Amino acid sequence: MDDKEKEKPLSFREMLQSVLAAAFGVQSGKNRARDFSRGKPSQFILLGVIFTAVFVLLIYGVVKLVLHLAGL
């Protein structure tokens, strides 16, 4: 990795990938080091909160759909 790439901020895709990997607990050491050196904590926190909200709403919607289809 050259110096320009080390200074370049993370792309949205890289941050989303890291948040998803963290949610499933499968983040590699290389990517974790990259996140700490090039990422901003505030961006990861915001993306993590948004991911969690979307996940909870998705689960809520699936449960409501299953209960509706079951006639309850």
Rank of each mutant, 00 (worst) to 15 (best):
D2S: 10
D2V: 07
D2N: 14
E5W: 01
E5A: 04
K6E: 02
K6P: 01
K6S: 05
E7R: 15
E7Y: 11
E7P: 02
K8Y: 05
K8H: 08
P9W: 10
P9A: 07
L10V: 05
L10F: 06
S11D: 01
F12Q: 15
R13E: 13
R13P: 00
R13G: 05
R13A: 12
R13K: 08
E14G: 06
E14V: 07
E14H: 08
E14L: 04
M15H: 02
M15N: 03
M15D: 01
M15L: 06
M15G: 03
M15P: 00
M15C: 04
L16N: 13
Q17C: 11
Q17V: 09
Q17E: 12
Q17N: 13
S18Q: 01
V19T: 09
V19A: 07
V19F: 08
A21Q: 02
A22F: 02
A22L: 05
A23G: 01
A23N: 01
F24D: 11
F24N: 13
F24Y: 09
G25N: 04
V26S: 12
Q27F: 00
G29S: 11
K30M: 01
K30Y: 02
K30A: 03
K30Q: 04
N31Y: 03
R32E: 15
R32T: 15
R32S: 14
R34Q: 12
R34W: 03
R34K: 15
D35A: 10
D35K: 04
D35R: 07
F36D: 13
F36Y: 09
F36K: 14
F36V: 15
R38E: 02
R38K: 06
R38T: 01
G39Q: 09
G39E: 13
K40M: 03
K40N: 03
P41Q: 04
S42Q: 14
S42Y: 09
Q43W: 00
Q43S: 03
F44D: 01
F44Q: 04
F44S: 03
L46S: 02
L46G: 00
G48T: 14
G48P: 05
G48M: 09
V49N: 04
V49L: 10
V49C: 07
I50E: 09
T52W: 09
T52M: 12
A53F: 13
A53R: 07
V54E: 09
F55L: 08
V56M: 11
V56W: 08
V56P: 06
L57T: 04
L57A: 04
L58P: 03
L58F: 14
I59F: 06
I59A: 06
Y60I: 14
Y60N: 14
Y60R: 12
Y60L: 14
G61T: 14
G61F: 14
G61Y: 12
G61E: 15
V62A: 08
V62G: 05
V62T: 09
V63L: 13
V63G: 09
L65Y: 08
L65D: 10
L65V: 09
L65F: 09
L67A: 15
L67Q: 13
A70G: 11
A70F: 09
A70H: 06
G71R: 02
G71T: 08
G71A: 05
G71W: 04
G71E: 10
L72V: 13
L72R: 07
L72P: 01
